[in-house]
Amino acid sequence: MPILDVYLLEALINGVLLGGVLALISLGLNLVFGVIDVVWICYAELIMFGMYGMYFLYSVFHWPILAAAALCIVGVGALGVLLHVIVIAPLLGAAPINQLLATGGVLFFLQSAATVMFGIEFRNLGLRLPVLKAAGMFISYSRLLAFGAALIGMVAVYLFLRRTYTGAAIRAIAQDRQIMTLMGVDSRRIYVVTSALGGALAGLASCLLVLLYDVHPFVGLTFGPITFLICVLGGLGNFVGGAVAAFVFAELISLGGLYLDLEWGYVFAFVFFIVMMFVRPEGLMARRS
């Protein structure tokens, strides 16, 4: 068997494409994590709601797909703000672990709200995108599209953080929480903006994931945990590190899936995470609680 056969190449490419989407998902979480210092355990459930939004707007109400996507991004962004104002803001002074547990409660709430409202059927857009055949490999356009849109989203966020005043304030707060309030930055306003941005990124991710996966109330559990691990592995508030970690994880999952089973890919990724936490704890984490 040649070292670089066509299946391996296909798995590698699919890994890169998955990595782009994972990087986008973890970017939103990383932003919230780095700026507000809160872990939104329910982040993947926000994405799940966005996916349902896409399904209903596009498949049931027959909106044009771009309008549906725009409304989903705005809607999930609003959900992010609500989450912050209702749950996180009253707990900002509490122990970090309490905030994590409270968003765990929101996770239960969102999952079961989806079960109650939409039922447990698997739904999909019913959108059949063609498959690209090149050199004996099969790569679906939906993955390519998701990858491209994820890249555009990441560049947009990067420019926002680098080129605008609010973006500079967000980065400054991520670096030093105490000093920035003394410098006249209203941290509460920045937290709300960050939550909106984090939610909007979840909304964008939901528009892309709905092309790849069926929606059901527990879909969040399939990619939620991996997202937290990517953020921690990449380093808190370190957006570049998060993107690198996302690609590493995606390749592990993709190659594990090629040689064994998809589940083993996840096992390798989790084990890799735990080992890396021990091997390079200070290099991988910008700050510790």
């Binding site: 547990l101 409270a102 409660g105 239960f108 709430f109 999952q111 079961s112 079960t115 109650v116």
Partner: peptide, 15 residues
Amino acid sequence: GWDNLVYGVLLVLFI
């Protein structure tokens, strides 16, 4: 789903 719905709200309220 309703039991988890109530759990979730309770958990947030309790914390």
